[in-house]
Write a protein that binds this DNA or RNA. Structure first.
Ligand SMILES: [Mn+2]
Ligand SMILES: [Mn+2]
Ligand SMILES: [Zn+2]
Ligand SMILES: [Zn+2]
Lengths: 145, 145
DNA sequence: TTACTTATTTGTAATGATTACAATTATAAC
DNA sequence: GTTATAATTGTAATCATTACAAATAAGTAA
């Protein structure tokens, strides 16, 4: 499974550069989204930070994610029609969600779709490309039966 | 505003060809999704059919839409992170949603993204391209103020 | 038709994600 | 330190969706 580490200093700069005051809660929410590369839900973020910040409120997680989304730091993925998943924005990529195991995969797509600032006269802020289907893992398991 | 008409005969054939028995409820739900080209929500479909079918249950609308989605007749759009919008599938196209007025626009995209049957080893059933931003209408209104 | 089986629809209750909001706590300004 | 402002928290409300069982309709075989 992918993983990564980000220093508190980097996180602070990231927040400040986006005009968000770097509180302990915001730092940790952003850190989790960046380090946990599996497109976590609000609840997953909340549950994972709870041990470190026992007073954490789920509302704060919601508020922080909303703020970071508006500032363009993270991406709110509407991909499963159930709960929103969050993704750190660094390079444009698409997503594949498996309808069998619900795993979300990053897809490196060679397309100029992401560069479009306007389309048919509308001003574009955000572009999402979502594929749905059966992932390789699940297909292999099907064959075994 | 766009509109269109579909005969009951066409609707019946569409349903039968997809292996769905054409009940009155299913015919009307599908008819509404096809004729009302504005990507209606479950509630909008329900409210609009209620006068014609006073006994209609919202559960039936949900069941029918789920069925038609699984059969590949319609598309369930996860675009606003709030409620699912439905769209008749005839030719592949992208969508633009305005964060100001929430209007959803069809976008004719010249891309081979829709033709991909598999990607990075995963089997693709459904592809959605969603743009988010400020629509032309709302931008004009902003200028007036 | 009638009796019986199966499919569909309906109504209501439950679930679960998200939001609203007021109270509390922390931070900043003076 | 006092006051003002911002951030966080907890709880209640909202709202889309799902679960489920009862009622109704449609299909089948005498
Ligand atoms: Mn991603
Ligand atoms: Mn459309
Ligand atoms: Zn899978
Ligand atoms: Zn608009």
């Amino acid at each position: 499974m992918n993983e990564r580490t980000v220093s508190t200093e980097e996180l602070k700069n990231l927040l400040l550069a986006s005009g968000v005051k770097p509180s302990v809660q915001r730092l940790n929410v952003l850190r989790y989204v960046i380090e946990e590369m599996n497109h976590p839900s609000v609840d997953k973020i909340y549950q994972n930070l709870l041990p470190q910040i026992p007073t954490l409120s789920k509302t704060t997680v919601y508020n922080t994610l909303k703020q970071l989304t508006e500032k363009g730091v993270i991406n709110a993925l509407n991909i499963d029609g159930h709960e929103i998943k969050y993704d750190f924005i660094e390079h444009a990529h698409a997503h594949f969600i498996c309808t069998s195991c619900n795993q979300i995969y990053d897809i490196e797509l060679d397309s100029d779709i992401y560069q479009m600032q306007s389309i048919e006269g509308h001003q574009v802020f955000n572009t999402q490309v979502n594929f749905k289907g059966i992932c390789n893992n699940c297909k292999q398991k099907q064959k075994e039966n």
